[in-house]
Computed example of a mutant assay.
Amino acid sequence: MKFLVDAQLPPALARAIANEGHDAVHVCDLDMTSAPDSEVWNAAILRGAAIVTKDEDFILLGRAKGTADVPAVVWIRIGNCSRKALLAAVLPILSTIVEMLDAGEIVIEVR
């Protein structure tokens, strides 16, 4: 599975996902730390990647675009927390997230 981790989340999340055997990059790895959402969206489409984000704007952008050329969005709805707490919340359910993406889910909320 391919993931593109957005700027509000730490690069450590992309590294941790990659360590689990997935293709995961952070926007900073692509020199896109300050890129607008539309550019991150397009990069995800080009990479065939799901966007991992805390930004609700990607959900709204997906609704506006309809169903054509829509990357999946893993919407992290965990409040501000440490990197350790974030990884502890996401990594144990990563296989479930991948299964849901493989099944065609477009939006996955992680709370």
Rank of each mutant, 00 (worst) to 15 (best):
A16C: 05
A18D: 09
A18L: 03
N19P: 01
N19V: 01
E20N: 10
E20S: 11
E20F: 02
E20K: 09
G21E: 07
H22A: 12
H22N: 08
H22K: 03
D23R: 14
A24V: 12
V25E: 12
V25G: 05
V25Q: 09
V27M: 11
C28V: 13
D31A: 15
M32H: 07
M32E: 10
M32W: 02
M32Y: 06
M32V: 00
M32R: 13
M32G: 07
T33W: 11
A35V: 03
P36Q: 12
P36R: 10
D37P: 00
S38Y: 01
V40Q: 06
N42C: 08
N42M: 14
N42K: 14
A43R: 15
A43F: 08
L46T: 09
L46M: 00
R47L: 15
R47F: 08
G48M: 03
G48E: 10
A49K: 03
A49N: 07
A49C: 05
A50D: 09
A50F: 07
I51A: 12
I51Y: 10
V52I: 15
V52M: 14
T53G: 12
T53Q: 08
T53A: 08
K54I: 03
D55Y: 08
D55F: 10
D55Q: 11
D55C: 09
D55W: 10
E56R: 15
D57L: 05
D57I: 04
I59M: 10
I59N: 06
L60M: 10
L60E: 11
L61G: 06
G62N: 10
G62M: 05
R63M: 07
R63V: 05
R63Y: 01
A64C: 02
K65D: 00
G66H: 06
A68G: 04
A68Q: 14
A68S: 11
A68E: 14
D69T: 02
D69H: 09
D69W: 02
V70K: 11
P71F: 09
P71A: 05
P71I: 08
A72Y: 04
A72R: 00
A72M: 04
V73L: 06
V74M: 09
V74I: 15
V74H: 08
W75G: 01
I76Q: 03
R77G: 07
R77Y: 03
I78A: 05
G79T: 07
N80Q: 04
N80G: 13
S82R: 12
R83I: 13
K84C: 03
K84W: 00
K84E: 14
K84D: 12
K84G: 00
A85V: 13
A85H: 08
L86Q: 05
L87M: 05
L87C: 00
L87N: 06
A88N: 15
A88Y: 01
A88F: 01
A89C: 12
V90D: 08
L91P: 00
I93Y: 13
I93L: 12
I93T: 14
I93D: 08
L94K: 13
L94M: 15
S95G: 06
S95W: 02
I97F: 08
I97G: 05
M100K: 15
M100L: 11
